[in-house]
Amino acid sequence: MIRYSLPIFGNNEIQHMPILSLDNVVKRYHNHTAVDHVTFNVEKGSIFGLLGPNGAGKTSLIRIITTITGADEGRILLDGEPLSSFSPAQIGYLPEERGLYKKMKVGEQLLYLAQLKGMTKKDARDSLFAWLEKFDIKDWWGKKVDELSKGMQQKIQFISTVCHNPKLLILDEPFSGLDPINTNLIKDEIYELNKNGTSIIFSTHRMEQVEQICEDIVLMNKGKVILEGRVDALQERFKENKFRIGFKGNLDRELTSDSFEVLSDSEDDLIISVKEGHDSNELLRELMDRGHDIISYNEILPTLNEIFIKQVDGQSDE
């Protein structure tokens, strides 16, 4: 096996060696290109969002990373090494479409799946007991899967994804089909795994979930990466100098100014866009000068959803 002491690409900083590096990865199916020269890095210990609408190529890309299929072109390094038959043991994958053997008992099934990931029977048993204990579901060991409710099955599925202590966890729409309680439970587990050093790729088309959870994201559309970076940096980059201003008392509804424009108003707040060449201090000063009683003042950052729609619209205009 070839060992790379340094990442071949990226920032060439050893401390920041990415857990996963994709370099110009291409996957073609007979009549379309599902993954089109995709390049990005997932930093070690991060929670990384892989975003895009349905059909953007997320699942195709994940299937390449999980060695289910192979890439036609490009290079992929997992923790500095090319994908190989050793990779599956280092990856935990929760597919969007969940599934377990219905007639098999929970314990047997979890042991089987863990051993397929390369664990010994003893290690698998120890790890599984610890997880079942944690979720307080040890007595499910001898139950058949089809005796469990859907939410319970999801927990079993989650345990099967993480019990072999993967370096990289890939979660494809992990919250779909979960009730709010289980969503929070799984979310907490994700945070805890991440705190203990597991890198996580979180794939979804539900952008609002990503804003809360992820640090870095990649936004895909039609097989291509159209945006990448830190969530706050992207929001900063795409903000439109909009502010929400809360006030008390009367306000001059027909407010006009050279430096700003009122976009909308309601009972007790205003949404104002600051014109180019002016800044928000000017806006505040102007409002205060007019004697308004301002109680709150927020910058409105664009949601990822808005950024995405804007980007996709921009792209289709080309």
Partner: peptide
Amino acid sequence: MEEKVNRIIEVLISSV
């Protein structure tokens, strides 16, 4: 057919 229908297949072939 069972493995395909109950969708466990994707988990399996990410391991083998």
